[in-house]
Amino acid sequence: MVESKHKWKAWLYLAPAIILLLIFTVWPIINTLHMSVQEGFNQAQANIGVTFDYGFGNFQNVIEYDYFKDCLFNTILLCVLTVPISTILALVIAVCLNSIGPLSRFLQTIYFLPYVTNSIAIGMVFAAMFNMVGNNFGNENELVITAGIINNVIEFFGGDPINWINAGSSYWANITVMVVYIVWNALPFKILILLGGLQSVNKQYYDAAKVDGTSRFRVFSKITVPLLSPMIAYVVITGFIGGFKEYSSIVGIFGEKMGPTGDARRLNTMVGFIYDAIDTQQGRASAAALILFGIIFVVTLINLAVSKKKTHY
């Protein structure tokens, strides 16, 4: 009696979630697959009765499209640079934080601050810090006035100012700024996870190492890293997944033009590519989204396989 009553009740409780999921999650999966295999699919034309041939033309077009390759390159480059840098830095910071007694909580709170920020808003602060304000920008030799604090610091140490993000800036200067900003943004989460892991590590291992007179570096590489490997694997995987979806941090620094003035869209990413095609070329956007899903899926599997081999539980 109670059981059968439960059955319809359970579905009643689940109804709001299931209805919304059917409309906004299940249908999109089906529809995206369907659009991706109709060559050159375009919703506006479909609405007036145009039909499209079935085939894998969208995928082929996307892959052969040079601009897509640029977006893919930007995305992978940012991933490959920021994930290792932020993970290693976070690991060192977490180990240091764990080794000190007083101030540790206070410092941890400070390090967490970038997490509770709006990535567009603080991106604008970084843009202001790297930006140059003056009349001669565009020609690197004529830089006289700079108000970008980063260049001021470089000049203070005797270096030459660099055109980071303004018109005429180089691609690698742009990438450097993005790496700095993304790492700054990624640290809080990684430190939080790694420090949490460190605090749960059994102290006995360290005591044994102390008795044996093991050097600090050996302790770090032979005890800390292996014991932390599940957490490291976790932050690397989430880092890659987030990295392949990089978009709003670039809008924060460069605005919606996704590049310096005069070279718009130079820093566009996979997600940006999908958004560009969302209004008019749904077939292409769908194919690109599926490719993105495929890449994230494969990278996650590789990461899991590697971490299974290397992870010490």
């Binding site: 906004f24 999650t25 999966i29 979806k245 899903f293 899926f297 996650t300």
Partner: peptide, 19 residues
Amino acid sequence: LLGTMMIPGELFTITNYQT
């Protein structure tokens, strides 16, 4: 349901935008 968490949100956005 847990399986759908692996799919990047952009994949849903294309259709949701039309919907």
